[in-house]
Amino acid sequence: MDWPRYGRVTLKPFGAGLTEAEWKGLYETFRDPEVAEWNGSSPLRTPFWLFKRFVQAEMRRKDRLAFAILDEKGEYLGTLELYDLTPEEATLGILIGKKERWGQGYGTEAVRAALAYAFDVLGLRRVKLRTYAHNLRARRAFQKAGFREVGLGPGPQGKEDVYMEVRREDFGPEA
């Protein structure tokens, strides 16, 4: 069980198999209206069995790696993905589904674990992301994890987005 870790969090690959509690946590993450709004989507209305089938099909894609974010007790907190994966770069996506854990540094720690994995294990040169410009909490967390802002622009939801990236040469143990 040599999964990516940083601080209090562990990234459990979906390919390792999710427990029933982790599946339910993942399902509830995507059903929550507030989480969906911050993700630029609508709350999930799909039945659990169909959601599970869809996620299992997505796990077979070669251009993405998905992880359950587990806290220091091994309990589900959210999900993190590296997608649009190439030999050179990936895009990062993260959702902390347990809202009572927001603002406690778990997201930053999960991103640090993912970046170390992306650079040290996968050998990527760059990881990028896009988030809402008005989401100052997320922007600060990404910056604390090592990302820097590289541009602003209109996003698909009609809101201004900020584009961020971190390059391998700029990523250190405590960026």
Rank of each mutant, 00 (worst) to 15 (best):
D2C: 11
Y6S: 09
R8Q: 10
G15N: 08
G17V: 09
A21I: 00
G25L: 06
G25E: 02
F30P: 04
R31Y: 00
E34K: 13
W38A: 08
G40E: 04
G40Y: 03
G40R: 00
S41N: 02
P43R: 08
P43V: 10
T46K: 12
F48A: 11
W49Q: 14
A57S: 14
R60H: 12
K62R: 15
L65T: 07
L65G: 02
F67E: 05
L70C: 06
L70G: 03
D71I: 07
E72V: 11
K73P: 07
L77H: 00
L77N: 00
T86H: 06
E89L: 07
L92D: 11
G93Y: 10
G97L: 02
K98S: 06
K99I: 09
E100L: 00
R101K: 10
R101M: 09
W102M: 09
G103C: 11
R112T: 03
A113I: 06
A113F: 05
A114R: 02
Y117C: 07
F119L: 13
L124E: 11
K128D: 06
R130G: 11
T131H: 04
N135L: 14
K144Y: 09
K144L: 08
K144T: 13
A145M: 01
R148H: 13
E149T: 10
L152Y: 14
P154S: 06
Q157L: 11
G158L: 08
K159N: 03
K159W: 01
D161L: 12
D170P: 02
P173L: 13
